[in-house]
């Protein structure tokens, strides 16, 4: 596997095509997608509803495996990787609906991710509190059950959770979709810091113009006449 210093390209898509299992033979949601993502940048992927944005994110995150073509993480095909290990160590995922465990507290959700990834952290609780502070949540949220948090607070916990094991790639699916403008800006600042200061690759699927404006690179998924999907650089 290549190191990030030798090659800043961390994710590469080669002729990636995808269609639903019950779709017609030529009814592809994504067709021949070729692109790469580099460390230190924020990528915004936009497109109309049904254009395949979330599907693309599912392919990159290893949650969907039945696709044509090849996706490589740091030079290694996902098809040859342990996808559980890939998801709990190399990439972090932030969902629009947060996907936190409701029976756990804010800090427990973050600590659980560290334990699953088996990342070597001496004091996981301390690390969790540091991450919470980093995303703008004070210690008083530590023992609060996530269902008692606001949408913005839950999203911050989801981001802290995804950062807890230091993945190189952060995938976010409509992370600000349920949030107000002010909170959206705060979340975007966290992403910017991660990309520009901590040299992470942040890929955000979004409808938001504000997010696109704050991204380093924006790609748009279009369904052209020949039903070929393309990524076009801003």
């Amino acid at each position: 596997m290549k190191t990030e210093k030798e090659n800043k390209e961390i994710l590469t898509l080669e002729n990636v095509s995808y269609r639903y299992s019950d779709a017609d033979k030529n009814d592809y949601v994504l067709r021949n997608i070729n692109y790469s993502f580099e460390l230190g940048k924020i990528y915004a992927i936009k497109g109309k509803s049904g254009s395949g944005k979330t599907t693309l994110l599912s392919l990159i995150s290893g949650l969907e495996t039945k696709y044509e073509g090849n996706i490589e993480y740091n030079g290694k095909s996902l098809k040859k990787m342990d996808l559980d290990l890939y998801r709990n160590t190399y990439i972090g995922i932030v969902f629009q609906s947060y996907n936190l465990l409701p029976h756990l507290t804010a800090s427990e959700n973050i600590i659980l991710s560290m334990e699953i990834s088996k990342v070597k952290v001496k004091d996981k609780k301390k690390k969790a509190l540091e991450l919470m502070k980093k995303v703008g949540l004070s210690e008083c949220f530590e023992h609060r059950r996530v269902l008692k948090l606001s949408g913005g607070e839950q999203q911050r916990i989801a981001i802290a959770r995804s950062m807890s094991y230091h993945p190189l790639v952060l995938l976010a699916d409509e992370p600000t979709g349920n949030l107000d403008k002010e909170t959206e800006d705060e979340i975007l600042n966290i992403f910017k810091e991660l990309a520009h200061k901590e040299n992470k690759c942040v890929i955000i699927v979004t409808h938001s113009k504000n997010v696109c404006d704050n991204a380093d690179v924006v790609y748009e998924l279009k369904k052209n006449k020949i039903e070929k999907h393309e990524l076009s650089e801003k």
Binding site: N88, T89, I93, L101, P102, R161
Partner: peptide
């Protein structure tokens, strides 16, 4: 839903 979240954050099926 809980199963979905556990699996998404990388917990193995066996675990």
């Amino acid at each position: 839903y809980e199963i979905g979240v556990y699996r998404t954050i990388g917990m193995k099926k066996s675990t």
